[in-house]
Design a protein around this nucleic acid. Structure first.
Lengths: 343, 343
DNA sequence: TTGAAAGCGCTAACAC
DNA sequence: GTGTTAGCGCTTTCAA
């Protein structure tokens, strides 16, 4: 059995460099109070020894905690996968470590994970994923995050306008308007919206945008049916079955995310319904596979990876007094799943 | 501004429960040396106070580190997304936290991430992703992981037979045999294999299985062309272009993972080549979207999520002297992208 | 069975 | 500009 050499400690570096512990600490953390040459020299010694600071000791001693926690609803959901990818990309580049935890798509789950992350004393928390329309729930989350921030933690949220913290805000309402306008222009009037859970902000915002489109076009939205099923492929499947039963005359289906749209495509194909000849289908998000499903999906592109990067950049940046809010754009991507209504 | 109450410390719990710090510690960590009733009582007090131990202090003091590190090539690659999903599922269930880091598909990246995780003093490391055929590289990784294990860390690797550690081993070679046999049965002889980088074990194993199939069928594999491009959608795209140029007579394309297969599908469609009438295409892994691409993909199912769960269970389980190796099965999933060769 | 006290490796006052 | 030293919150000997 190989005898395991204990890892070097800061004191080892200090000794080797012939300076005190404090000087070594200052040199490595880049704080001033050390002459340039000396600091440089100490860093060189440390590097050569392969010294890496013990993150636990550093954090315990009151230094800045280096790990950031990322809370997603479910990592296997492509929307969150891409956000996580953006977060990790910046993390790798900046030598930061990130802990990922899943909220299981419930507010209680989010609360639980925030508490866990706080207990772990992470330096920052990125809360990804739709907020909840229930103000009560959001208040609780905000209180928890507020407490974390008060104790020096950094926070960034993605797509939650209610929470007072740095935020990256996807253009959900405007995106809803864009996609609905596209369908209206193609002549569609009888439209089914495959919406996720009604208590999600993302859902209500995108829905509001869709209604905006009808108002803008000066036509009634009485012919729009909204069906709420889970924000998953399975939800798209059952929602479509229900739509076919309730509104057989519908000529278009707007799914409020791509995953649901893909489920819808599958349900339609299974019944031999042609897309887009018989019914047009659109998605939302433009996840990576949207271009490869059959038929390729018309959708609204939300730059998830970039959003993840921005959220990470925000929590890594210096603290500012007023919370920053970054709005991201959206883009209509027309592919093969939508077409003019057949007369 | 809300005054932030400092979180409770163990000493607070001890005081409130009327015991010493040591007794409180023992009670909560479940180590013996405390009477049952007392321990029970202290735990009750802690729970009621909402006490959560400071992970840094615990780890620094020599307690068991609770976080596990997961190293993937790239989180946005569906193969790794699903493994991560399995790992996180178990983590959530067991109240463990997991740090995810990306190796950027290079052995140096893996080495770097292992070092970083060691510096973070994680309790366990799960190394996911193909090993490298270069023995030198694997030796270095093994040394680093060995050192980690020697210092008490737990390790599980996924799909790397060379490394001495608990391992979950996907059935790559047998899977290769199965998929190639399927195509041979359909009458295909001129086959192009879209392989990922030649230095990946996953690639060489799957490739070996394909050759096995030809040997088993008693036919020559001279008609098989292997093209090495990156293990990505883009790689599938360029590989297919190259295949079309080099082997216009090929009737089937075996991609060594689904992502490449999807890229291939796209390249073929773009040129108006019909699938499977003109050329059959198969994938490997059965990622979630494989059923939804156009046409749906015939592939070999590898239970990635389950693999992630198993790896996590292994590092969480009690240490055993001899490394465990768990082999996982595979399953041929026939969909619409493969068909009989046209005469 | 319980408690007192000595660190774990680091940062940040505080001296010089 | 540099060094000394007191903790951070916990686990774990070592005594009692």
């Amino acid at each position: 059995m190989t005898k395991e050499a204990a890892p070097f400690r800061l004191i080892d570096v200090a000794t080797r460099a012939g300076v005190s512990l404090a000087t070594a600490s200052r040199s490595l953390s880049g704080s001033d109070g050390v002459s340039k040459e000396r600091a440089e020299y100490v860093r060189g010694v440390a590097l050569q020894m392969g010294y890496v600071a013990n993150a636990h000791a550093r954090s315990l001693a009151g230094g800045a905690a280096s790990t950031v926690g990322l809370i997603v609803h479910e990592i296997a959901d492509p929307y969150f996968t891409e956000i996580a990818s953006g977060v990790l990309r910046i993390a790798t580049r900046q030598s930061r470590t990130v802990q990922i935890s899943q909220s299981q798509r419930t507010p209680e789950g989010e609360l639980l994970q925030i508490r866990a992350l706080r207990a772990q004393r992470v330096g920052a928390i990125i809360l990804a994923g739709s907020g909840y329309t229930d103000a009560q729930t959001e208040k609780q989350l905000e209180a928890e995050l507020g407490a974390f921030q008060a104790s020096g933690g950094r926070v960034a949220v993605i797509g939650r306008h209610q929470i007072t913290a740095d935020a990256v805000l996807p253009d959900n309402r405007a995106g809803g308007l864009t996609i609905a306008s596209h369908l209206i222009e193609l002549g569609h009037r009888r439209i089914v919206v495959l919406a996720g859970p009604a208590d999600l902000n993302t859902v209500s915002d995108r829905l509001a945008g869709i209604m905006d489109a009808f108002a803008d076009a000066g036509i009634t939205s009485d012919t729009v049916t909204v069906i709420h099923t889970p924000f998953t492929r399975e939800g798209g499947l059952t929602g479509t079955d229900q739509a076919l039963h309730d509104c057989p005359a519908a000529t278009a289906i707007i799914a409020l995310n791509d995953v649901m749209a893909i489920g819808s495509l599958s349900a339609l194909r299974r019944r031999g319904i042609r897309i887009p000849e018989d019914v047009s289908v659109s998605g939302f998000d433009d996840i990576t596979v949207a271009a490869d499903v059959g038929p390729s999906l018309t959708t609204i592109r939300i730059p998830m990876t970039r959003i993840g990067e921005q959220a990470m950049e925000m929590v890594l940046a210096a603290k500012v007094s007023r919370p920053r809010r970054k709005k991201t754009g959206h883009e209509l991507v027309i592919r093969d799943s939508t077409g003019p209504v057949r007369t």
